[in-house]
Lab assay of single mutants.
Amino acid sequence: CSVCSEPIMPEPGRDETVRVVALDKNFHMKCYKCEDCGKPLSIEADDNGCFPLDGHVLCRKCHTARA
């Protein structure tokens, strides 16, 4: 995971895991958050999703503030 540096592995008792890929980086679902404010990001293409800027994973509000 690009945030916590832990491997993305299935939880005990499970055969599969879910990971998020954004900007060629891999994330646990729980680690997929705005780099500035820490708001959890949605994997859907909506207002709560990722608004990347200069290689950073940001929420819409933080993207607008940086732009």
Rank of each mutant, 00 (worst) to 15 (best):
1 C>Q: 02
1 C>I: 00
1 C>G: 02
2 S>L: 01
2 S>T: 12
2 S>F: 15
2 S>G: 13
2 S>C: 02
2 S>I: 02
2 S>Y: 06
3 V>R: 06
3 V>W: 03
3 V>S: 06
3 V>C: 07
3 V>G: 03
3 V>H: 03
4 C>T: 01
4 C>M: 00
5 S>L: 13
6 E>C: 10
7 P>R: 11
7 P>L: 08
7 P>M: 14
7 P>D: 15
8 I>H: 12
8 I>P: 02
8 I>G: 02
8 I>L: 11
8 I>V: 03
9 M>L: 08
9 M>R: 12
9 M>E: 06
9 M>W: 05
9 M>A: 08
9 M>S: 08
9 M>Q: 05
10 P>I: 07
10 P>C: 09
11 E>S: 13
11 E>P: 06
11 E>H: 01
11 E>R: 06
12 P>R: 10
12 P>N: 10
12 P>T: 13
12 P>A: 14
12 P>V: 10
12 P>Y: 14
13 G>L: 09
13 G>D: 09
13 G>M: 09
14 R>G: 04
14 R>H: 11
14 R>Y: 10
14 R>E: 11
14 R>A: 12
14 R>C: 13
14 R>Q: 05
15 D>A: 05
15 D>S: 10
15 D>H: 09
16 E>C: 04
16 E>M: 04
16 E>G: 09
17 T>V: 14
17 T>A: 09
17 T>I: 10
17 T>P: 10
17 T>L: 11
17 T>H: 09
17 T>R: 10
18 V>A: 15
18 V>H: 15
18 V>R: 14
18 V>E: 15
19 R>N: 07
19 R>C: 07
19 R>Y: 10
19 R>H: 12
19 R>K: 15
20 V>P: 07
20 V>F: 04
20 V>G: 03
20 V>I: 11
21 V>I: 04
21 V>H: 15
21 V>N: 07
21 V>W: 10
22 A>S: 14
22 A>Q: 12
22 A>W: 09
22 A>Y: 03
23 L>H: 15
23 L>T: 10
23 L>Q: 14
23 L>Y: 11
24 D>L: 03
24 D>E: 13
25 K>A: 08
25 K>R: 06
25 K>C: 04
25 K>G: 03
25 K>L: 06
26 N>S: 15
26 N>W: 13
26 N>I: 14
26 N>P: 06
26 N>F: 04
26 N>Y: 13
27 F>K: 03
27 F>H: 01
28 H>T: 01
28 H>K: 01
28 H>R: 00
28 H>P: 01
28 H>G: 00
29 M>N: 15
29 M>V: 13
29 M>C: 07
29 M>H: 06
29 M>S: 14
30 K>M: 04
30 K>I: 02
31 C>K: 01
31 C>E: 01
31 C>Y: 00
32 Y>H: 02
32 Y>N: 00
32 Y>E: 02
32 Y>T: 02
33 K>L: 05
33 K>G: 05
34 C>A: 02
34 C>E: 00
34 C>R: 03
35 E>S: 06
35 E>L: 04
35 E>K: 07
35 E>F: 11
35 E>D: 06
36 D>Y: 04
36 D>S: 10
36 D>L: 05
36 D>M: 05
36 D>H: 05
36 D>F: 03
37 C>D: 00
38 G>Q: 12
38 G>A: 11
38 G>P: 02
38 G>S: 11
39 K>P: 00
39 K>W: 09
39 K>G: 11
39 K>Q: 13
40 P>C: 08
40 P>D: 13
40 P>N: 11
40 P>Q: 14
41 L>W: 02
41 L>A: 02
42 S>W: 02
42 S>Q: 09
42 S>T: 09
42 S>H: 06
42 S>A: 10
42 S>N: 14
42 S>D: 07
43 I>E: 14
43 I>K: 15
43 I>L: 09
43 I>R: 13
43 I>Q: 13
43 I>M: 12
44 E>I: 03
44 E>Q: 09
45 A>N: 14
45 A>L: 07
47 D>C: 10
47 D>N: 14
48 N>R: 08
48 N>V: 06
48 N>Q: 12
48 N>F: 07
48 N>A: 08
48 N>I: 07
48 N>L: 09
49 G>I: 11
49 G>H: 09
49 G>A: 11
50 C>I: 10
50 C>Y: 06
51 F>H: 11
51 F>G: 08
51 F>C: 05
53 L>K: 09
53 L>D: 06
54 D>S: 06
54 D>T: 03
54 D>N: 08
54 D>R: 04
54 D>E: 08
55 G>I: 03
55 G>F: 04
55 G>Y: 03
56 H>T: 07
56 H>E: 05
57 V>N: 06
57 V>K: 04
57 V>L: 12
57 V>C: 05
57 V>D: 02
58 L>Y: 12
58 L>H: 05
58 L>G: 02
58 L>F: 12
60 R>I: 05
60 R>G: 05
61 K>N: 09
61 K>Y: 11
61 K>G: 09
61 K>L: 07
61 K>E: 15
62 C>V: 01
62 C>T: 01
62 C>I: 02
62 C>S: 01
62 C>G: 01
62 C>D: 04
63 H>S: 12
63 H>G: 14
63 H>K: 04
63 H>L: 03
63 H>M: 09
64 T>I: 08
64 T>P: 06
65 A>D: 14
65 A>C: 12
65 A>R: 12
65 A>I: 05
65 A>V: 14
66 R>G: 11
66 R>N: 08
66 R>A: 15
66 R>Q: 14
66 R>C: 10
67 A>R: 13
67 A>C: 04
